[in-house]
Design a binder for these strands. Structure first.
Length: 103
DNA sequence: AACAAATAGCGTCATCTGGC
DNA sequence: GCCAGATGACGCTATTTGTT
């Protein structure tokens, strides 16, 4: 619901935490061996980072989806077991009643 | 209607984990 | 040991819900 999916990247929702702000390339190696070479390697590093972020974004979504499904299953199972429990309790009560009326 | 608190969902980072 | 994928934790926005 929140956040309409299509505003990814470049901190569009302003939810970058302090350590994420500033230099998005901070985790990228900054070797300088010639102007052209460093430029391309920087571009490559940025591309690599974007790819990594994109993959992790997808992974996080999938992870949450699976977790939600798991919790839903547990809740359904709980409901079934609670009903079974009620039925069994009622059965026990009925059997006890029969037993006591025989006395 | 206006507001606050609660809830849901997202993106990112750090860390864990299993396969190679 | 390295790497990719999975997941917990965090901070954030948007939506829903209850209260005045």
């Amino acid at each position: 619901m929140a956040v309409t999916g299509d505003e990814t990247e470049t901190g569009s929702t302003g939810d970058m935490t302090s350590y994420q702000l500033g230099n998005p390339t901070s985790s990228i190696p900054q070797k300088t061996s010639g102007p052209h070479h460093s430029q391309t390697s920087l571009e490559e590093a940025l591309k690599k980072r974007e790819l990594r972020l994109m993959k992790n974004r997808e992974a996080a979504r999938e992870c949450r989806r699976k977790k939600k499904e798991y919790v839903n299953c547990l809740e359904k199972r709980m409901e079934i077991l609670e009903n079974q429990n009620k039925t069994l309790i009622a059965e026990i009560k009925a059997l006890k009643d029969i037993y006591h009326h025989k006395e």
